[in-house]
């Protein structure tokens, strides 16, 4: 092999690896992107049943029902719309009524959201801006809970 051929081979194999990787990336992105919606979004945009989404909002006060085995049902609200959610498993430590929550799963045909993972975070990043805005319009004063130190206060237990 001449030097030129060798270099060609190397560059060629490099391009081939990158090309394969790029194709994998595109396919994987198509399949594993999950969109983030609030209950109002879902009502307005009509997310099809069966599509994987992340649902964000507040856990509606008084909506948590336990005691159906390990299945828990609750409602997620952005204060404009509510969406019933069912989840089987152990809820995270910070899960509380009235607190921000992000659930990942799919909508079933009856307008119930079947979550397979639930993240509870006292972190404004987990409260979509629209939810925050609508909450503030409703007279719910949101503190500077961008920092979990602040936010932790909101989970205070007597």
């Amino acid at each position: 092999m001449t030097r030129k051929q060798k270099r060609g081979l190397m560059i060629g194999s490099g391009v081939a690896v990158l090309g394969v990787a790029a194709i994998m990336v595109l396919f994987a992105l198509k399949d594993s992107i999950v969109f983030f919606h609030t209950p109002s979004d879902i009502a307005e945009k009509g997310v099809p049943a069966g599509q994987r989404i992340r649902l964000g909002g507040l856990v509606a006060n008084g909506s948590v029902v336990r005691g159906q085995g390990t299945t828990v049902s609750f409602k997620v609200t952005d204060t404009l719309k509510e969406l019933p959610v069912t989840f089987t498993g152990v809820l995270p430590d910070l899960f509380r009524e009235g607190q921000g929550v992000v659930a990942e799963g799919v909508l079933d045909g009856n307008g119930t959201f079947a979550a397979d993972s639930v993240l509870a975070k006292h972190d404004e990043n987990y409260m979509p801006a629209e939810v925050k805005k609508s909450l503030e319009e409703r007279g719910v004063k949101l503190g500077t809970s961008a920092h979990p130190e602040d936010a932790a206060k909101t989970s205070a237990q007597p």
Partner: peptide, 17 residues
Amino acid sequence: EKISVGPPFFNMTFGPL
């Protein structure tokens, strides 16, 4: 649009490499 890229993406791309 707010999205998240989950573990399946990394498993599908990183793993084969």
